[in-house]
Computed example of a mutant assay.
Amino acid sequence: MSDTTKPAVWIFDSTGEAYGAVQCRDDIRDGDVLVVESEQVIGIAHTWPFALTEAHGELQRFRKGLDPPTWEDGKHAPGVAVAEREAARMGFPLTRVDAVATAPADENKGDRA
């Protein structure tokens, strides 16, 4: 993976700020990592940005099912790996795959998957 496709890590003051930035900024790419230390949230940029941590704030939560690294044919796996390392480094608990995992909810259409 080249540096241009390596997931970037973005730091935000709130999950609301992170969600809005993903929706509005062109420099944040799908699969980039979102860190909100004040809310103990680590997430992934996506059309509906989603949290990998138990705390999720304004980010979407995963539903029961597939795990984040394999979701959407693994296209978010590099970001998930970076996000999991960040969560471990910061001591933020991750959501258990069997508890709540796969596609983020589409807030306009209900659950997507």
Rank of each mutant, 00 (worst) to 15 (best):
K75G: 04
V100G: 15
G65V: 04
L59F: 08
E37D: 15
G31T: 03
V9M: 08
S38K: 06
E17V: 07
D13N: 12
S38L: 04
W71T: 09
L66W: 08
I28W: 11
P69Y: 00
R61Y: 00
W10V: 05
R29Y: 06
E72K: 09
V82E: 14
A99C: 00
W10R: 05
L34P: 12
N108E: 15
P93S: 05
R112H: 10
D13E: 12
S14W: 05
D106H: 07
V36Q: 08
D26K: 14
E54V: 10
W48G: 08
G43K: 08
A113N: 13
G79T: 03
A99P: 00
P68F: 00
R29E: 02
G57A: 11
P78N: 04
D73G: 11
T47D: 15
P104M: 05
Q60A: 15
R89P: 01
F50C: 02
A105K: 06
D67A: 03
I28S: 10
K109W: 10
R112G: 05
W10E: 09
D73H: 14
G31W: 01
A99G: 07
K6W: 07
G16E: 09
A87K: 04
L59T: 07
L66C: 01
V9Y: 12
A8N: 05
A81D: 10
R96I: 01
V97I: 11
T4A: 07
A113Y: 11
I11K: 14
Q23G: 11
K64F: 08
M1E: 13
T4N: 00
I42H: 12
V9E: 10
I11Y: 02
I44Q: 03
G16C: 05
H46G: 10
C24Q: 08
A55T: 14
R96H: 05
R25M: 02
Y19G: 12
E84P: 00
A88T: 04
P49G: 03
T102S: 09
H46S: 13
E37V: 15
R85E: 12
A113R: 03
W10L: 11
D32N: 09
T70M: 02
Q23W: 00
V41I: 15
M1H: 03
G79S: 06
I42R: 13
V41M: 15
P68W: 05
D106F: 07
G31E: 00
S14C: 05
D32A: 00
A45H: 10
R89G: 01
A99W: 09
P49A: 11
R25Y: 05
I11T: 07
S38T: 14
V97C: 06
Q60M: 04
M1V: 06
E39Q: 15
P68C: 00
H76T: 01
D26C: 08
G31S: 07
T15H: 12
G110K: 04
G110A: 14
T102G: 11
L34R: 09
K109Q: 13
H56A: 10
S38I: 01
R112M: 01
V36N: 14
K64M: 00
T95D: 01
D98N: 03
A101Q: 07
G79R: 07
L52C: 02
Q40L: 05
V100H: 14
A21E: 14
D67T: 01
S14R: 11
G91T: 11
F12S: 09
P68G: 08
F12P: 03
Q23S: 12
A99V: 13
D111L: 04
I42Y: 00
K75N: 05
D98L: 02
T95N: 07
